[in-house]
Write a protein that binds this DNA or RNA. Structure first.
Lengths: 322, 322
DNA sequence: TCAAAAGTGTTATCCTTACACCCATGT
DNA sequence: ACATGGGTGTAAGGATAACACTTTTGA
């Protein structure tokens, strides 16, 4: 560390794909230690922009070319890094969301030491498709209850008492579940010391103290925080930008489209309303082909109408409640 | 520049206040060269987090304590900086949005070399409150017309032909004006070489070539881009978070509240609908007091109901068209 | 013929938009 | 009295949420 106000830049990407009904996240260092997002340093002398550096870095680590890329957030407090602060320069970490189609063969990925993992393995409480996740009532809410009881009136960082925050984030008594608040929920669990990452930051690992089951798989450094940011942003973006199609094959059935949206959103949608929505938005057009189904009547195949981007300002699948 | 992958971090803030019906932006170096946003370097050894460093930096430069602070975006391509790249380390610039109440006396600010300036001085085409801004038909649309004609089919960065982008951004023939697309519009003008900043980046200043009037006042470095990002984000956020109240005095009339929203959004709203909206959202409560008006019937005074934050998940002024 | 999945039609409800009108004060 | 801005009621239209039902294939 020579220049006083000089830092290293770390670029990390949450690369998302969907396989059938499971959303997947690209991780490196399979098997060896905690999974990590593909990440690399930014060297301004080698790459003109942050995004170019990121794409290069992903390609090098995972042999994968991603399409859609979006910047999420820049994290400066690397108290959350596993690496102690006094070794090497301080690192500022920029998180990205990237979308890609599921690659046909996993072999190339595996060769590069990468793999796709279901994202709900890291966030089991975020999947409400089949039923309300058991881990909520079995572990999270009781533990949060104890945490709020410890200091009922104490205002935490955001100027809200613990109980109110827990209610809003996890939708207890009356408050609705908001699938976009992925980051808020993770941060709350972090502050309550209920995720393993919190222990690295000097917090007592309440999880160990109370011998709770581990809440979701852990990731290296602050990567699970970046993934949470990515999930929340993607869930929000689905509703006002046609980003789902980055995750679909060129032609697809409406059911497959719905399944993909549901996989990402973490909840079921009403079939008829979904179809009407897609039609009304004129987001797709039939290819004429149809798919001899996996059992049942064959389904029409559709493709994304790229023209909508030119026609309407903010096309997305604005699904609401049902 | 010693360590290969090491950069400097620049923190810049768009500090917004509203005075009556004019939204204001805090600038430093009044009079001496182009106005600039308050900005400073991030030194991880002096400040634990980016946000703390930013607040300290603003306070030092402008003698102002800001309330609400939100990170906007991290820009890495400082081809847009006025400083040549080979002097000192490469700079990565993190932009922030900050909201504050208009300070009672401008003297303290002036002493620190800072001042509030109306933000529409930098973006005259963004104010649709009185009428459609003249600069659109007088200068922008004709110039953009020539630019699209130069290469009608050429896909620009975002894979859309120039004409389609111009239509969507500036709402020509049929497309509606979207007040949130502030950044998209600025970037389009930049690419078309119609704002002075573009000349620094090696682009021919079409503005000079065509002897157009200057399109809005210029700022130092990429600060106008950060301001554009801030304006767009704030306009969007008004609709789903109760952020306006950060700009209001503790008690205010409903008309003053509407005026503030209109000032930020850059367009007029329907009075009755606005009031019903505020009431339905239960965002405010009467103080009991009333203001002996500036002519006309005295108006009830209201205050922000902080409790809504605990009650409902995403309270904001979800105004639509009118 | 039956299960499984595709696909359609219709209605009740809420929210948005827009209109037109009345009230209280200072000059 | 009248101009000025504050404040309200109510109806038309569209979007959303929910219902039940028909069609086409493979086993």
């Amino acid at each position: 560390m020579s220049d006083p106000a000089t830092v290293g830049i770390g670029l990390s990407a949450a690369v998302v794909a969907v396989d059938g009904d499971t959303p997947q996240i690209l991780v490196t260092r399979v098997g060896d230690g905690a999974p990590a997002l593909p990440a690399g340093p930014f060297d301004p002398r080698r790459h003109r922009t942050l995004e170019i550096a990121l794409r290069t870095s992903i390609a090098a680590q995972t042999a994968l070319d991603v399409g859609y890329v979006e910047q999420l957030y820049t994290f400066g407090d690397l108290g959350r890094s596993a690496t102690p602060d006094d070794v090497g320069p301080h690192i500022v970490s920029i998180g990205y969301l990237a979308l890609t189609r599921r690659p046909r063969d996993a072999a190339a990925l595996a060769g590069a030491g990468a793999a796709f993992r279901p994202w709900y393995a890291f966030f089991p409480w975020e999947d409400w498709r089949r039923r309300r996740p058991e881990v909520l009532d079995a572990a999270i809410l009781p533990a949060l209850g104890r945490w709020t009881a410890e200091a009922p009136e104490a205002a935490t960082g955001r100027d809200l008492p613990r109980l109110a925050r827990a209610r809003l984030c996890f939708g207890c008594d009356g408050a609705p579940w908001d699938e976009e608040k992925v980051l808020d929920r993770y941060e709350l669990l972090y502050e309550a010391g209920l995720v393993e990452e919190a222990a690295r930051d000097g917090r007592t690992a309440a999880a160990a103290r109370e011998s709770l089951p581990r809440l979701g798989e852990t990731m290296r450094d602050d990567h699970r925080r970046i993934l949470a940011t990515a999930m929340g942003r993607l869930r929000a973006k689905l509703k006002y930008r046609p980003v789902v199609f980055e995750l679909m094959k060129p032609s697809f059935t409406l059911t497959a489209l719905q399944q993909t949206v549901e996989a990402v959103a973490g909840r079921k949608l009403h079939k008829q309303n979904f179809r009407r929505l897609v039609e009304a938005a004129a987001l797709v057009e039939p290819t004429g082909e149809s798919e001899t189904a996996t059992g049942g009547r064959p389904a029409q195949l559709y493709r994304f109408r790229r023209e909508v981007i030119e026609e309407r300002p903010a096309p997305g699948l604005r699904f609401g409640r049902g």
